[in-house]
């Protein structure tokens, strides 16, 4: 350890990374321009033959004309490569064909990688698990050097869904990992369920925020609470990095409290089993914006995610009034 002992410096920097972030910039959770706040696949993980319904939580100007471009990549992509897919459709088909996957045929007019330009998209797990396993192995053997991450060709195959959203002013590129379960013994993850959202103030006034806008007082502190069952944090089998053994673990969850205005106590909250209280995840405080600084309404976007890609959200718009 006499040389390059500066790892501790690297980690100390990592620890303090977020501390160093400037508050001068607009907060990540302040939604003031075109944003894609979440992508959901239903179901969260696909078993062979299942069809994934892909939807996105997009925040945009009501008047903006937003375009969507969905695509899929059979392996995990990386930021270093700009999240470009290192595998072409031809490479995948060739890998399938080389390994006796001739039984697989792409339906007429269907593109494996291009998932369309609609607001939502559909991803059908139409390649058989056994075919995909062999093709995956073949791809790794032939082009492993070009893959940013070596895939697990026998268990949960990490694929990537990419969405490019454009409103004519801004363009946002978003990626989501989509797990294809290649073994029937695996249990698919489920998207976490969000309950109702209530806002209470210190004077004891409590409002359940429904889809129909309620009314909140500007710059008045409201404790926000989402009704959530601790069971949302599912148990799942995973490989312990340290021992290599299969262990049962519980999911960590994190909630992002996006807002169109005002301030929240936390931008994100989390539940880390064994480390934090579950209530920490579902409680926050919001000070809605001034009427003059908004159009008289404010929107709250709650995105709940588990550590395995399960996602759900809830959007609530409120009317504002000055105190």
């Amino acid at each position: 350890m006499t040389r390059r002992a500066n790892l501790n410096v690297v980690v100390a920097a990592t620890v303090l990374f977020a501390m160093a972030c400037s508050e001068d910039f607009e907060a990540f959770t302040d939604v003031t321009k075109l944003r894609v706040l979440a992508i959901q696949s239903e179901p969260a993980e696909l078993m062979p033959g299942e069809i994934g319904q892909l939807s996105a939580l997009v925040a945009a100007d009501d008047n903006a004309s937003v375009t969507y471009q969905w695509s899929w990549c059979p392996v995990a992509t990386s930021a270093i490569m700009g999240h470009e897919c290192p595998v072409t459709e031809e490479m995948l088909l060739a890998a399938i064909a080389q390994n006796g996957g001739g039984a697989f045929e792409i339906p007429e007019g269907v593109s494996l990688f291009d998932l369309g330009t609609s607001q939502t998209a559909v991803f059908p797990f139409i390649i058989g698990a056994d075919v995909l396993q062999i093709a995956c192995t073949q791809l790794v053997a032939q082009a492993g050097d070009q893959l940013p991450f070596l895939p697990d060709c026998e268990g949960s195959l990490d694929t990537t869904v990419k969405l490019v959203v454009n409103d004519g002013v801004d363009e946002v590129v978003v990626v989501k990992q989509l797990n294809l379960l290649l073994s029937e013994s695996l249990i698919a993850n489920r998207n976490p369920a969000l309950g109702t959202l209530t806002a209470s103030d210190s004077e004891g006034v409590s409002i359940t925020l429904e889809e129909a806008p309620g009314t909140l007082v500007s710059q008045h502190g409201y404790e926000l609470a989402v009704s959530l069952s601790p069971q949302v944090s599912e148990s799942f089998e995973t490989t312990d990095v340290e021992t290599g053994a299969i262990v049962i673990d519980r999911e960590s969850l994190f909630m992002t409290w996006f807002i169109s205005g005002g301030e929240t106590e936390y931008g994100r909250t989390s539940y880390i089993p064994g480390e934090t209280e579950f209530d920490k995840l579902r409680l926050n405080t919001w000070w809605p914006p001034r009427v003059a600084e908004s159009d008289g309404t404010a929107t709250l976007y709650l995105v709940l995610q588990d550590e395995r890609g399960g996602t759900s959200w809830l959007t609530r718009t409120v009317q504002l009034q000055e105190r």
Partner: peptide, 25 residues
């Protein structure tokens, strides 16, 4: 030695599942 306690780990990074950090040499 340096020991830190994170009041809300998610504020730093959503994938941070530790509530404390430390370094000692």
């Amino acid at each position: 030695e340096l020991k830190l306690l994170f009041e809300n780990p998610a504020d730093f990074s959503p994938d941070l599942t530790a509530t404390s950090g430390s370094t000692s040499t």
